[in-house]
Amino acid sequence: MKILIIEDDREAADYLEKAFAEAGHTAHVARDGETGFALADSGEYDVMVVDRMLPRRDGLSVIAGLRSRSNTTPVLILSALGEVDDRVTGLRAGGDDYLTKPYAFSELLARVEVLNRRATARETETMYRAGDLELDRLSHTVRRAGREITLQPREFRLLEYLMRHAGQVVTRTMLLENVWDYHFDPQTNVIDVHVSRLRGKIEKGFDSAILHTVRGAGYMLKAA
């Protein structure tokens, strides 16, 4: 995956560049808004990571400029501002995801991989499959190895999200944001309990594990 990082802080940008490279991606860095805009305008990147406060041209203006030129490259906004309003403005300007500093790289990586435009095509599919697990988004039914599994509505949405991003790491905050639509950190890790309940339903009585815990990052749904 080709990633464009627009970040003015040298240390942060170098760290991101190296970390993305270690994760197997190619990352380019632009240190100001104008350069970032020029690079992004080529349209050759799969995902962009844009800091909000940039020299020469503000991050939101870069995104809005790209969008007005029909550039649809997915954008993740990085910001030190984390209020509800700030996030709303960021997403309204054309951002696809919003992450508040300080963040864990695992969180950023997971979100960037999910944003990758080659992966987002699954949005429109009506049937998700991972190994012998099937989820029908129209009839709201889940089967594993042909056996129907009854899920609560929230469990269904949780599994739906995990299956849409099958093979990718999904963090707890991503689940909380996308399945529950909350953007705060619950004091107790309530998400883990939901996931383990779901895991019980889709793994119990079957031979193989399919919902894996990724240490220090989150979860991944992947058929053996």
């Binding site: 529950w180 619950p186 309530v190 309990v193």
Partner: peptide, 8 residues
Amino acid sequence: ELYEPAAE
């Protein structure tokens, strides 16, 4: 709904 499993 979010806390129910954790409470249980």
